[in-house]
Design a protein around this nucleic acid. Structure first.
Lengths: 150, 150
DNA sequence: CTAAATGCAAACCATTTGCAACGGA
DNA sequence: TCCGTTGCAAATGGTTTGCATTTAG
């Protein structure tokens, strides 16, 4: 995580940008959050800390983090963009519980290979893909069951 | 397509709604469009015809079409929701050209089965999934090549 | 000192809603 | 006639931008 600071600062300097306390805080909050955070969540978590960057700065800083390969933004179906850690991460897909919003990452070699086959078949040169599987996790099914029975 | 009219009208009646010229026109335009249309596109295409439903009515009618199983809405990454025909259609995934926006539908039994295996492994009961593969189609690669060479 | 950063307010853009006029059944 | 529909205008919600003020280098 200390290295992420370095990577971020290097990126800022090389593009003529400045290192600021807000940017440092947002990076720290982003790295400290597990998994998939929205700009709103970063904003709320940052508020707890010493300083309070505005929404504008959160959005602008997340864009910088995406630029330097630390974060990756993905639009989820609730209309919010979620940001996830992406530094030297292997590609993965998402399994999402529609009950509690839990997001599980997975990687499946077979699915990846089969996708390549499909795209070749259609003469398309793949750049990237997103696979999201929606369903109910064990916990949420248990809660549903109790609610129905009770 | 005449049967879609019937299905739509039956749905309207059974829910205490009324059959109007705007609703009929929007259904007609939707069925006449190939593939994946946005509300905007429906609105534009309807304008050409005799009457001109407002944006509001287009959105409200598309919601009705989704309700009765004729259409299905899916958020694409440009922020627009696209609607596609969904009456007794088999599930399918999408291959999208980032150059020209071409959308190809495909179905791959192997990928479907492998997805089921993954979800079972994580104890999740799947409800649905979306797989979008992005890339460049032959035509767009050809155009790119010429632009680079020329 | 000076160009970049911040953050408020206002703008955006797709979609939704309030409401008064309109139109099927 | 009567309740649902229409469509304008205004609201919404996530995200971006203009601009005057502040700050890093």
């Amino acid at each position: 995580m200390a290295e992420m600071n370095e990577i971020f600062h290097r990126h800022l300097k090389s593009t003529g940008n400045k290192i600021t306390s807000q940017r440092n805080l947002i990076l720290k909050v982003f790295l400290g959050a597990e998994g998939h955070v929205s700009a709103e969540e970063i904003y709320q978590r940052a508020k707890v800390e010493d300083q309070t960057p505005g929404f504008t700065t959160v959005y602008r800083t997340l864009k910088l983090l995406v630029e330097c390969g630390i974060a990756r933004g993905e639009k989820f179906n609730d209309g919010h963009t979620r940001y996830e850690y992406d530094y030297q991460q292997q590609h993965h897909d998402h399994l999402i519980c529609i009950g509690c919003g839990l997001v599980v990452e997975f990687y499946n070699e077979f699915i990846e290979r089969e996708q390549d086959r499909v795209t070749r078949e259609f003469g398309v040169e793949t750049t990237h893909h997103t696979l999201k599987i929606f369903g109910n996790c064990r916990t949420c099914r248990e809660i549903d069951r109790k609610a129905t029975v009770g």
